[in-house]
Simulated scan of single mutants.
Amino acid sequence: MSVLPIVTYDDDLLRQKAEKVKENSESFQQLIDDMFDTMYNSDGVGLAGPQVGKLKRLFVMDADPMAKEFDEPKQGPLVMINPEIIEAGEQEIQLDEGCLSIPDVNAPVKRPEDIVVEYLDRDFNKQRLEASGWLSRVIQHENDHLDGILFLDYLSVFKRKLFGSKLKSIASGDKEIDYPTVPKKAQV
């Protein structure tokens, strides 16, 4: 297992739609392990395939730190392959979100409080999960990554401009980050 570098927000890869995972393999299972290592090493609660340079409809997550803080039930680590949110509740709640691909940038985002998601688990068994609270939020955030959507897209132009200097620092590779990243500029 190893820690993978995380692609930063300015990379076009994060704006592409990820492809469905069609088969299991030893290398795919290794990717899952590496993604968990990367997520925990970065103090994250979720990490999607595109964030580590893999355009696969896959994310790993562990929302338990947030659940504990907000006195919500714990779910433990989850692997979601080819997830589909099939229901979303009408009640929305606004909470601060951040992203490992956009370090040290947090902003309030409004999302449905409750969802139902269908997905394949790590063993490619079909699962259905009713989620609320932080579990729901993390699933929605990571699922957005699979469709090329960043949480910044939910913000007004004015709000995004407020983060301009932080975003430029990340894109240029000048921002000190406590975990390995790959800014787009560094790839040239």
Score class of each variant (00 low, 15 high):
140 Q>E: 10
31 L>M: 01
5 P>S: 08
21 V>I: 14
31 L>G: 00
50 P>R: 02
162 L>C: 07
68 K>S: 11
73 P>W: 04
103 P>L: 12
64 D>P: 09
27 S>D: 12
40 Y>T: 02
162 L>E: 10
110 K>W: 02
49 G>N: 02
91 Q>M: 11
162 L>R: 13
135 L>T: 09
185 K>S: 13
59 F>A: 02
48 A>Q: 01
137 R>D: 04
182 V>N: 06
85 I>H: 01
25 S>D: 04
110 K>Q: 08
186 A>M: 10
108 P>T: 02
77 P>Y: 00
188 V>A: 14
161 K>C: 07
167 L>M: 13
98 G>T: 03
170 I>E: 06
118 E>K: 15
130 E>D: 14
140 Q>F: 09
126 K>P: 09
57 R>A: 06
4 L>R: 11
65 P>C: 06
116 V>R: 15
78 L>V: 01
180 P>W: 08
103 P>R: 12
63 A>C: 12
125 N>P: 01
73 P>K: 03
158 F>E: 15
115 I>Y: 05
6 I>Q: 00
124 F>C: 02
167 L>F: 05
101 S>H: 06
92 E>G: 04
19 E>F: 14
70 F>L: 13
125 N>F: 09
72 E>H: 00
103 P>C: 12
33 D>P: 00
118 E>S: 06
36 F>N: 01
172 S>K: 13
161 K>H: 14
63 A>E: 08
24 N>Q: 13
41 N>A: 15
123 D>F: 12
90 E>K: 15
63 A>H: 04
112 P>H: 05
42 S>T: 01
115 I>H: 01
44 G>K: 01
35 M>F: 05
2 S>P: 00
101 S>G: 05
75 Q>A: 13
60 V>W: 05
86 I>P: 09
173 G>V: 11
145 H>N: 06
115 I>D: 05
95 L>Y: 13
154 Y>K: 15
179 Y>N: 00
81 I>L: 03
24 N>I: 09
168 K>P: 02
119 Y>D: 04
94 Q>K: 15
76 G>V: 08
182 V>A: 13
49 G>M: 07
79 V>K: 00
122 R>E: 14
164 G>E: 12
5 P>V: 09
148 G>N: 09
96 D>Y: 15
116 V>F: 04
136 S>H: 08
106 N>I: 13
40 Y>S: 01
151 F>N: 00
149 I>W: 09
99 C>Y: 02
134 W>A: 04
154 Y>I: 05
92 E>M: 14
181 T>C: 12
182 V>Y: 07
151 F>V: 04
137 R>K: 03
80 M>A: 03
13 L>K: 14
86 I>R: 07
130 E>G: 07
167 L>T: 00
143 N>K: 13
65 P>K: 06
95 L>H: 11
180 P>F: 08
123 D>G: 06
131 A>K: 03
122 R>P: 10
105 V>T: 05
133 G>H: 03
175 K>H: 15
140 Q>A: 09
35 M>T: 00
137 R>N: 03
92 E>F: 11
187 Q>A: 12
102 I>K: 06
56 K>C: 06
170 I>G: 04
177 I>V: 15
87 E>K: 14
152 L>A: 06
39 M>P: 03
153 D>A: 03
156 S>W: 09
122 R>M: 07
137 R>Y: 03
177 I>C: 07
80 M>L: 15
153 D>M: 10
158 F>G: 14
124 F>P: 01
132 S>H: 10
102 I>L: 07
165 S>R: 14
